[in-house]
Design a protein around this nucleic acid. Structure first.
Lengths: 153, 153
DNA sequence: GATGAAACTCAGTGCGA
DNA sequence: TCGCACTGAGTTTCATC
């Protein structure tokens, strides 16, 4: 699965992660190459799926999303049908920003961004009414110390 | 703090989050406006800090980051100096993708992306050698069910 | 692969409505 | 505030080294 990338590919990815709005000339200058090879490599990285999407990151608080919860979930259900329903519910809810199935004691972790505690409760009530969940612990974020999508390529 | 945005602003943000590579004309067409107003609004949203950065999202597994941990941290230290050192350590480490200070029992949660369990252990050893930490629980992700940066504007 | 140039598209600006 | 048209800049392609 891991793509083989050389040093130039990695430099290009680092620049794109840093600022995807740069022109090809700017990137080429910084990575010590020129326009066409940089462009060809970006295209290949895109085709190979290494570059997934190009997006903008918004300021959640400026948009009124003032509360962020990490939700630890234990379930007693482990059948395929239950899991399918649970995953579909998570994928359908836009307030769920991350969802991972875990090894060990706790079965799932979610990162949920909502306007306030009341909105979280609405989300929680909706979720448990859709699928049976054994035990839920919500951790309320007081401060986002760090949040990055940049991978150290 | 919350910026006041009208329906058109929100539609534009939704489009940009979906695909920031679209041309202004494409966005204008989809949101039912034309180029100039869309461009002006994007500029203002950028200046207001609603749009933070433009970036590419990479496939972590394609780049060899096969392990993702959520790390729950309890500390006995609550002095300013300790906290400053801890935050600096987190910010300096590129494998830390998210770090939040929490309310309640658990003090911090981290999301850490590394090549494998061995790399996580190296990170963990380095971190506890830098700052004193009372109790650490690592939750290993088996499956990334969902991961998005899109806010439901 | 890299380079350079040509063709085309788009972002950004100014103006008129 | 919007829509239109213009221009310089940037992207994409192609031929050549």
């Amino acid at each position: 699965m891991a793509a083989r990338l050389d040093a130039l590919d990695r430099k290009i990815l680092a620049e794109l992660q840093e600022d995807a709005g740069q022109s090809l000339d700017e990137i080429a200058g910084k990575v010590g190459s020129s326009k066409t090879p940089v462009w060809n490599r970006i295209r290949k990285l895109r085709e190979a799926g290494v570059i997934r999407r190009q997006t903008v990151l918004l300021d959640a608080e400026a948009l009124g999303f003032d509360a962020c919860f990490f939700v630890l979930i234990r379930t007693s259900e482990h059948e395929a049908a239950w899991q399918k329903a649970f995953l579909a519910a998570l994928r359908a809810r836009p307030e769920v920003q991350e969802a991972h199935r875990l090894a060990g004691d706790i079965d799932y972790i979610l990162k949920v961004r909502v306007a306030n505690a009341r909105a979280y409760d609405a989300f929680y009530q909706a979720l448990i009414s859709e699928v049976k969940i054994h035990n839920v612990t919500a951790l309320l974020s007081m401060e986002e110390i760090k949040s990055t999508t940049v991978l150290p390529v």
